[in-house]
Design a protein around this nucleic acid. Structure first.
Lengths: 176, 176
DNA sequence: ATAGAACGTTCATTTAAAGGAACACCACAA
DNA sequence: TTGTGGTGTTCCTTTAAATGAACGTTCTAT
């Protein structure tokens, strides 16, 4: 079972604070919490309140989960982590995912429904992806769109890859 | 400034719990917390500890941030809500945002740094967007890429619009 | 009906998180 | 030197979150 590591939060808080060149006192004041509180948290002791975490996340400008997420990413079995960001309700239907692949990962994906189009946008790292046999290399900032109604694959080499993935289900049967 | 809405957490907890067909007592027992505690949280009162949130998230099998993220969208003053999804650390730098616009919204955006490219992908609804004077209509599944180092705008008509936005800072000065 | 078991709520108590002041420490300037 | 202003830490106190038991319900089975 997953366990809450208090140390991680402390490491993240301190790293993010130092990255911004702020002092502990400054951040505590800006967030509106006691500096004794922040000090304890950075040391890895304590079990902050949602309110406290929230204030710190807002000040640091991070998406919240960033603070508590383990520093070394807990990947799926195949080295790939996928998160659903949003899911459209219109026609065509659109699914948006955030995805992250560890180095030296190869992931095969089954064909989706006929007509489905998949688009990738690299946020960081490098990724080789596309239909089986016709993959392309992507680096940060690159995008790739391909037909997803056939087998396709994602593969990393020496680096991590973080990307946005959208799947558009241009179902040819959708007459609505 | 962002504010922590306690009600949201409660709504999410209850919705996720009911979606799994669990009783309050069951979930509390499984998570190892007092059911009085969970009851209060679902009612929107209280300010749970990180430990408490963590245990509930693990039991419900959700990525944590899901519990606190807004359910019914609290829009910004101009009817636009923007959430940072991820931020690349490579060159070029890439920022990924999730964005949602209320009907009959017009949002002007200042030019970003020179060379910046912006890409939009509609998840649902319809949106008119692009450089000032050269905007295009987009519906679910459509994408648009344009130079973001000039004034640009987003505008909805009778519908909501949900979209993914990525900004690639192809800074021409980056020789690193 | 009526006992039983489940539900979710409310309350008093216990526990610990948050706050505030004092502290030791290091810089830099007068 | 000796201040003065900053750092981050460690206490003690105050506040409130988490607990556990008791409560009023509802539903089912006897």
């Amino acid at each position: 079972m997953d366990k809450l590591s208090l140390g991680t939060l402390g490491q993240h808080l301190q790293a993010l604070r130092l990255a911004r060149g702020w002092s502990l006192s400054q951040l505590a004041a800006a967030a509106g919490i006691a500096k004794s509180n922040l000090s304890r948290l950075e040391q890895g002791n304590g079990n902050p309140t949602l309110d406290t975490i929230w204030r710190l996340a807002v000040q640091l400008g991070v998406p919240f989960g960033t603070l508590v997420a383990p520093i070394a990413v807990p990947l799926g079995e195949d080295g790939v982590e996928v998160r659903l960001i949003d899911q459209g309700k219109d026609h065509p239907q659109v699914d948006a995912y955030w995805m992250r692949c560890a180095p030296h990962t190869l992931r095969h994906a089954e064909p989706h429904t006929p007509g489905a189009q998949e688009s990738l946008t690299l946020i960081s790292g490098a990724l080789e992806a596309g239909p089986e046999g016709a993959t392309k290399m992507l680096v940060a900032g690159d995008s790739l769109t391909f037909a997803a109604d056939q087998p396709h694959a994602y593969r990393t080499h020496d680096t991590w890859a973080t990307l946005l993935m959208t799947i558009v289900y241009t179902g040819q049967g959708d007459t609505l």
